[in-house]
Structures are given as structure tokens and as C-alpha cells.
């Protein structure tokens, strides 16, 4: 199962890059037919062997656990470019950035050695982390925030062991997701600042 799923993120990334490139060239690739063609090209690129390994597995060589949140954001971008459908609205995205940045700030400094407490330990088995994320998910569902669906996908993927990691943290967040969240929140902040009279 994890081997097949490991191609999903690279496939989506290639597709998003191709869509971005087409956008820069002024080509509109919205619709079923261009999406199907682009999807086939992306799948072909992902499985093309380079130096004996499919391109997707080269990506996995350097980061085997792209989080479900980042995969969902990429899926959102691809479906938006393909069909003009926004699966997440501004509020959902803001929740995603804040959640990921908060998770990253809690996790990475301590996991990399700041102090004796290692929050990463909480991702194995069942712990406070599961209770907190479950609570956040239910709260977001009550608030009708669609980022909750991404969190449901994360626990589902964890239970199915779709990533190489068995640790729940890796399904929620990864360093790239934190970076993307930082950039998105900074942009938002700068935009708000520039709008002020």
C-alpha cells in the first residue's frame, strides 16, 4: 500500500508544475480533456526511470513522508486549475496554514533537540496528540470548516498506513507544509499591511 501511495504526491506535484507552466505560457487547461492528457503526461513522468529509479521514487529518496495536509493542498490546487472548482475556501486555507504552522512550531524545535521532551513520541500508538487532533477536527466540523475533511483524511491514511511512517505527526505535517504555511501567512499579512491607508 505505501509503495503505490508514494507515487501520489510526486504525480500531483508534476501535474501542478505542468499546470503552472501552461498558465505562464497563457494556456488555459481547464476541462476534462486537457486534465486527462496532463494527468497521463504527469503519470508518465512520475514513473519514468532515471538512473534505474522512477522519478517519483527519487523524490521519495529525500523525503518519504509528504504529509496528507500538503498532499491535500496540492490536490486542491490541481482541481482548481483543472476544473475551476475551489474545494477549500479562504477560511479553510487560513485554518490549514495556522494549524500546520502551529504543529510545526510545537514539533520541530523539540524533536530536533530543544529540551528533554520529544513531542514526536506522541505520534506512535495513542496519546494526547490523537485526542487534541480529534477535538480540533470535531470543532472545525461544527464550524463547517472544510479543513476538517483534510484532518479526517490524515487519520484515515494513518490507520491504513499509507505513508512509510507509522507516526501520526508525519500524516499531519512535514517541513515543506510548514514552509508553505509560513509563506502563505506572510503573504496574507503583507497584503493586509499594504491595504491599510
Amino acid at each position: 500500500m505505501p509503495l503505490g501511495f508514494s507515487f501520489v504526491f510526486p504525480f500531483l506535484l508534476i501535474m501542478a508544475l505542468l499546470q503552472g507552466g501552461a498558465g505562464l505560457l497563457g494556456r488555459d487547461l481547464c476541462g476534462w480533456r486537457p486534465t486527462l492528457i496532463l494527468g497521463l503526461i504527469s503519470a508518465f513522468i512520475a514513473v519514468t526511470p532515471v538512473g534505474g529509479l522512477p522519478l517519483a521514487r527519487w523524490m521519495i529518496s529525500f523525503n518519504a513522508n509528504f504529509s496528507i495536509s500538503l498532499t491535500a493542498i496540492l490536490f486542491y490546487k490541481v482541481t482548481e486549475s483543472s476544473f475551476g472548482v475551489k474545494l477549500l475556501d479562504k477560511n479553510d486555507l487560513l485554518t490549514c496554514w495556522v494549524f500546520s504552522l502551529t504543529a510545526g512550531v510545537i514539533l520541530y524545535p523539540m524533536a530536533l533537540g530543544l529540551g528533554r521532551f520529544d513531542p514526536y513520541q506522541a505520534g506512535w500508538g495513542f496519546s494526547w496528540l490523537f485526542v487534541v487532533v480529534c477535538g480540533v477536527t470535531i470543532l472545525l466540523l461544527i464550524m463547517k470548516n472544510r479543513f476538517a475533511v483534510v484532518l479526517i483524511a490524515a487519520i484515515l491514511a494513518h490507520n491504513l498506513r499509507l505513508l512509510e511512517s507509522t507516526n501520526f505527526w508525519d500524516y499531519l505535517v512535514d517541513p515543506f507544509m510548514v514552509l508553505v504555511s509560513c509563506i502563505a501567512l506572510s503573504n496574507r499579512f503583507l497584503r493586509k499591511l499594504s491595504k491599510r491607508p
Binding site: G125, F126, T137, I138, L141, A148, I155, H158, N159
Partner: peptide, 28 residues
């Protein structure tokens, strides 16, 4: 999201978290 969908998703969430919790309870 309508109210029915929210209720279904809340139940799904609880069920999905019950899986690792049951594993933990069996070790107690």
C-alpha cells in the same frame, strides 16, 4: 456542509480515532 453531512463526518471522525484508541486500550 449541511447538518446531516456534519453529523456523518463527526461520527466518521470518532470511528477513525477509535481504531488507534482500541489498540491502546488492549495494552492497558
Amino acid at each position: 456542509m449541511n447538518r446531516r453531512l456534519v453529523i456523518i463526518l463527526i461520527l466518521a471522525t470518532l470511528l477513525l480515532y477509535a481504531w488507534p484508541m482500541l489498540g491502546w486500550l488492549s495494552t492497558l
